[in-house]
Every structure is written in structure tokens, then in C-alpha cells.
């Protein structure tokens, strides 16, 4: 199970994490270390292990663990419990349960920011076949002092390395739902895409309430966030996002799944 953290190169935002000690919360006999890894493509750039030191929880920023150069070269970070030194029963106990992790985001100058809790994501098994994703970024607030960013973090472990990158189609949609523009990009493996609503809608007269961005494609695993930022003070707000198919049950039904993917990904090869 992993917690994924985007690394912001274009914005003065630092990322960190918080985890509760499973020795205290899940009754393990020994506390595991926490392994923090920096990734770029399928390369592991740097890795640090930190311990709870008997405390109930730890909180840490990537800047506390890695050098500026290491962070500058990295695409994303992953955080997980290091299970190597645990007993088989502790390992089974740890891996068999779901954990909530916490990610922290703060302005690089004021060091103040926002945080979110979300479930750590289980590792995919070797041979896993990814489906394309669909994301509708519909909650944005843009003004003279605020901007909103759609953040898509692409994670794929080295044991599922591939040279095939499925393109991500991005649509900008006006407040009446009409498609204003359509473009295609590739989000590199273990990298993040960060798109400013203010910038994306500028060619169309600026953002107005009801404008949205739609993402389709990218055959990989994505953690998706909506980030709000006060451009004057650096104040932040963040929330993870849920894809439209989270709200329909067809995706779980093998018979309906094929039609569901055909409708959602017209023009894209689907892998139901």
C-alpha cells in the first residue's frame, strides 16, 4: 500500500505526509519503518527510511528528507511501510488491512497550508492490465486572486514497466458544456501533470462558473487532486477527486462493463 505525493516544480509548494503508527493502531508486535521513495520514470532516484521512534504518528516533508537537487530531478514520491524486517504475522496483518494516509501541502515561504486524508493504494500485481481513466475536473474557483489546478499523478511500478504510453485526451468545456478545445498529451510514468484552470481558459475569454476539464486515456494508475491556491498569499486548499464511474455500478458488472467502456472512451482503445 502506498501514498503518492506529487512534486510541484512550477509552483512554490512543498509536499509531505503523515502516518499513524500501526504498532499502536493495528496491534503489530514491532513497529515498521516508513520508506519514502523518489521516482522519475521507472528509475528510483533516492530512498529514505524513517522510524516512528515509539511515537503514535509521524509527519514529515520531502524537503526534510531529500536534497533540493534530488527533488528537482524527481517526478513523484511514494510512501509505504517497510515490511522486510517484520515477522510473517505482522507482515500479513499490515498488508491485509486498509490504511488511511495523510498528505500535507504547504506554501514554500509561509510554510502554512492544507492537508487531506485518503486510503493508501494497494500495489498492483505483476501482469496487471490497466484500463484508461476518465476524469471530470468540474469544481474550480478562479478569480483575480485564486486559481485552481487539476493535478494528475501517474504511478506505475518498475515490475510493470512498459514503453507503451497511452495518450491523455484533454477537453476544455465551456459553461454550456460545449467543447472549446481538445488536445492530447502524454503524462510520463511516475510524473505529474498540473494544469491551471486560469491558463487553460484564458484563450476563450477566461474561466467562468461551470467551465470544466475532461481527461480521457492514460493507461496507468492515477491519483487525482484538485488544488486551490490564493496567488497573493500562497494559501492552499486540496481534495482528491473521484472519477464519474465511481457513481455508477455498471463498471463492476462484467456484462455491462464492455458497453460502459465503449461509451466512455469512444476513439480510445479500451481494456475492460
Amino acid at each position: 500500500m502506498k501514498l503518492f505525493l506529487p512534486i510541484f516544480h512550477q509552483l512554490p509548494i512543498e509536499t509531505g505526509f503523515g502516518l499513524r503508527n500501526p504498532l499502536h493502531t493495528r496491534g503489530l508486535t514491532k513497529e515498521p519503518q516508513v520508506q519514502v521513495s523518489l521516482w522519475k520514470g521507472f528509475n528510483l532516484l533516492a530512498e529514505k527510511k524513517i522510524s516512528f521512534q515509539g511515537k503514535d504518528g509521524i509527519q514529515c516533508y520531502l524537503q526534510d528528507l531529500f536534497t533540493d537537487t534530488e527533488l528537482k530531478n524527481a517526478g513523484i514520491a511514494s510512501v509505504e511501510f517497510a515490511v522486510k524486517d517484520l515477522s510473517p504475522s505482522d507482515k500479513a496483518n499490515l498488508l491485509g488491512q486498509s490504511f488511511e494516509g495523510q498528505s500535507f501541502y504547504r506554501d514554500a515561504t509561509s510554510k502554512l497550508g492544507a492537508t487531506i486524508l485518503y486510503d493508501m493504494i494497494p500495489d498492483k500485481k505483476p501482469g496487471h492490465i490497466y484500463s484508461p481513466i476518465l476524469h471530470s475536473a468540474h469544481s474550480a474557483s478562479v478569480s483575480d486572486i485564486h486559481d485552481t489546478y487539476a493535478v494528475l499523478l501517474n504511478f506505475r511500478p518498475p515490475y510493470l514497466e512498459t514503453t507503451e504510453v497511452q495518450p491523455m485526451k484533454i477537453q476544455t468545456r465551456g459553461s454550456n458544456g460545449k467543447v472549446l478545445s481538445e488536445s492530447q498529451t502524454e503524462i510520463g510514468f511516475n510524473e505529474s501533470l498540473i494544469l491551471s484552470f486560469k491558463k487553460e481558459f484564458k484563450p476563450f475569454g477566461g474561466f467562468e462558473s461551470g467551465c470544466s476539464l475532461t481527461f480521457k486515456g492514460g493507461k496507468s494508475q492515477f491519483a487525482i487532486f484538485t488544488l486551490f491556491r490564493n496567488e497573493k498569499t500562497g494559501a492552499l486548499g486540496i481534495e482528491h477527486s473521484l472519477a464519474p464511474h465511481y457513481y455508477v455500478s455498471a463498471v463492476a458488472n462484467p456484462v455491462a462493463r464492455k458497453k460502459f467502456y465503449e461509451n466512455a472512451f469512444k476513439g480510445f482503445r479500451s481494456t475492460p
Binding site: S139, T226, T233, A235, G237, E239, V248, N253, A256
Partner: peptide, 22 residues
């Protein structure tokens, strides 16, 4: 199949210092 309602709640700050929250 079954559908579930979907929405997000955005808290808009009334000061000029904070950022929207969701």
C-alpha cells in the same frame, strides 16, 4: 445499474487571504 448522486462542496473564503476549500 444503480446510480449514486455526485457533487462536491466548495467553501469560498470571505477574506482575501485564504483559498477555497473543497
Amino acid at each position: 445499474g444503480t446510480l449514486h448522486p455526485h457533487f462536491m462542496t466548495v467553501f469560498l473564503p470571505q477574506d482575501k487571504l485564504s483559498s477555497p476549500q473543497m
